[in-house]
Design a protein around this nucleic acid. Structure first.
Lengths: 236, 236
DNA sequence: GTGGCAGTTCTTGTATGTAAGCAGCGTCGA
DNA sequence: TCGACGCTGCTTACATACAAGAACTGCCAC
């Protein structure tokens, strides 16, 4: 029975599309035809359509009724919103750090940092570890479940980070900052931990801003702009 | 014709169901059959199904594959999560209050407080004004757009508040607290504003906790419990 | 050349049909 | 009495058919 299709067909399509959008494999502006996606994924329109609706609610996809669906542009305002939200949540969590930390969780975070060091030149791997690390910080304070809300809101932020980091070489600096944060938390110095975390998040955001100024075309807001249809001749 | 169905059929169904869930018109545990809802709302199953999926993502509806869909229980953990999130966001916003406040917005908030005073015995009206007031506070600091994320996450919190406030008489105390907060903000005393707001939000949360201890059955978590079929499907 | 207008072809929105699973309930057998 | 088992009626998941709209294409009149 295989490992049982615990996950519905829609879940698979949703996660596939979401991953491709966040990794920029599906770049901003890309056309997402329900029919084409259904055909290429080997399912019917229904699960595809439902996934597009969900991604639309997240702001990662823009659906124009009776016209078409597209990967949304990286909207600078949304990026800033997500930055504000994650900073607010992660910093607030540090107000609730318990006296005695969960030793297993601390060990998990230290191991994570080791892996980050090793993967500091592997963008995708580093992102995965970075996500787990920040989630872990929230879990330390007992607010791990709030992470899902942050995740749902920070899609634009993640895409912007990827745009920026593709041009840098090495995430070593971020690993150092992560270390400082965790050390401060373990030492029980919540104030210092807060400062380190804030500095870290702001540094990430500044990188994004620099990228935006270098390549503003990637961040074109999709206010009034409306999709255009183009007939392309292909040799098939 | 009519005033143009600017809003799709799905949007109407979604908003209708969401409102009924949040106002407890559809109580926790209520069965939500796609067929029944489609028939009673005069549409097909498609927009109903899509709405249920969205509400499921919000945590307001629980969908059991091939069994049935139900209004989710008021989960105490989710209530606490939402409380943490909204407090983090609203307090963080007060760190970014600008020197010069938008006078129109301040006037709007003052007018809102007037109406709150008048509506302090009208639960639904008061809730509406309360939402607008807190949203307005965020807008004062330029973070108005973050409100939508908070709204999406605090469905369980809102239901818990309604459960509690149905037993109290008058929301006058909350109006007073709102006044204190706004006054502090206008006076430029961000620190005092933060304290007032935190106190206000905690007071609301304490009310919820008291309700939970009085009527724990309303908050039964829906962990492993599974729906049972009777003559009609109920979720117990 | 240019404006207007119908047709074509794409899109999403909605309705409906089909498949597959779960659980209650009655039947049957021991 | 009690357990096994298929029937029945429900559910959601998925597939497909149909409707309505939007934008491009190209013809046609001028």
């Amino acid at each position: 029975m295989g490992e049982a299709s615990n996950r519905s067909n829609r879940r698979v399509v949703y996660e596939t599309l979401r991953r491709k959008v966040l990794t920029l494999e599906l770049p901003p502006g890309a056309s997402l035809s329900e029919n084409e996606l259904a055909a290429s994924l080997g399912v019917s329109r229904t699960p595809v359509r439902e996934s597009l609706i969900l991604l639309g609610e997240e702001g990662l996809v823009r659906v124009f009724p009776k016209v078409g669906s597209f990967v949304s542009r990286v909207d600078a305002e949304r990026v800033a919103d997500a930055q504000f939200l994650r900073e607010a949540v992660e910093l607030a969590a540090f107000d609730d750090i318990p006296e005695a930390l969960d030793p297993d969780l601390v060990a998990e975070l230290r191991a994570n940092l080791e892996q980050q060091r090793e993967a500091r030149h592997d963008l995708e791997k580093f992102f995965e570890l970075d996500e787990a690390f920040h989630h872990g910080l929230l879990r330390l304070s007992g607010h791990g479940r709030a992470w899902s809300t942050v995740v749902a809101a920070k899609g634009h932020l993640d895409r912007a980070r990827r745009l920026g980091l593709q041009e840098t070489n090495g995430m070593g600096r971020f690993v150092d900052e992560h270390h400082s944060i965790l050390d401060a938390v373990v030492a029980g110095d919540a104030s210092s931990a807060r400062d380190s975390l804030r500095g870290h998040l702001r540094a990430v955001f500044d990188d994004i801003e620099k990228t935006r100024q270098r390549s503003p075309e990637l961040f074109a807001a999709d206010d009034g702009s409306v999709p255009v249809r183009r007939s392309i001749a292909v040799w098939e």
